[in-house]
């Protein structure tokens, strides 16, 4: 066992009671991720989506999580304080069963990157009603394991950059054959 070390966990706390439904989070997310930065706006490209039904008082801002290539075998509905939330309302996946979290033109999946390089995610910064707040916390992880993993990945990435991923995969396959 190696020594323990700290890892930063980035969290956006969503207070649905404070959401006023304005969709500024969607707007600024799409602008920030435009290329060049802020050169266009299109909430349909946003990595945060507000699931919003004012007449049912439903306001759920959801950040795009990882892409998955299959839908769930079954789905859940939640009822909270008498309000029924739609299937997938709290799910962050970009998946075949929903329109959310895909580029409207290419269909490519979108993932929230917490606005890397900024002090805090811009959806948080632009939410003046504090429905979204940013929190960082440290978690302890085993250092050696992480270190080894990181080193190996950096090395592999460098090799992939130089020779292309396909050649690396082939080489690994050949190495495995030799070993057997």
């Amino acid at each position: 066992m190696g020594e323990n070390t700290k890892k930063t966990i980035k969290t956006i706390k969503v207070d649905m009671d404070k959401c006023n439904g304005c969709r500024t989070c969607e707007m600024i997310c799409s602008a920030f991720h435009a290329v060049p930065k802020y050169s266009s706006v299109n909430p349909a490209r946003s990595r945060i989506r507000l699931i919003r039904h004012p007449l049912r008082d439903i306001y759920v801002p959801v950040h795009a999580g990882e892409y998955v290539n299959a839908e769930c075998a079954g789905r859940d509905k939640y009822v909270i304080n008498g309000k029924e939330y739609e299937e997938c309302a709290f799910c962050r996946a970009s998946c075949p069963s929903r329109e959310e979290f895909k580029e409207p033109d290419s269909g490519l999946p979108l993932t929230c990157d917490m606005c890397e390089g900024e002090d805090e995610p811009l959806c948080v910064k632009w939410c003046l009603n504090d429905a979204l707040t940013y929190e960082e916390r440290e978690e302890e992880v085993e250092e050696d394991e992480i270190k080894a993993q990181t080193e190996m990945e950096i090395g592999l990435e460098a090799l992939a950059d130089r020779f292309g991923l396909e050649k690396i995969t082939d080489a690994v396959a050949r190495m495995r054959e030799k070993e057997q």
Binding site: N20, C22, M27, P54
Partner: peptide, 27 residues
Amino acid sequence: RTRFISCYNCPMECGATITPPGQPTYM
């Protein structure tokens, strides 16, 4: 009054959803 609500891209909460007893919600 159920909630203060806003227009697109605006932090001001000038509106509200209103649910009178026995009647549908409106804004």
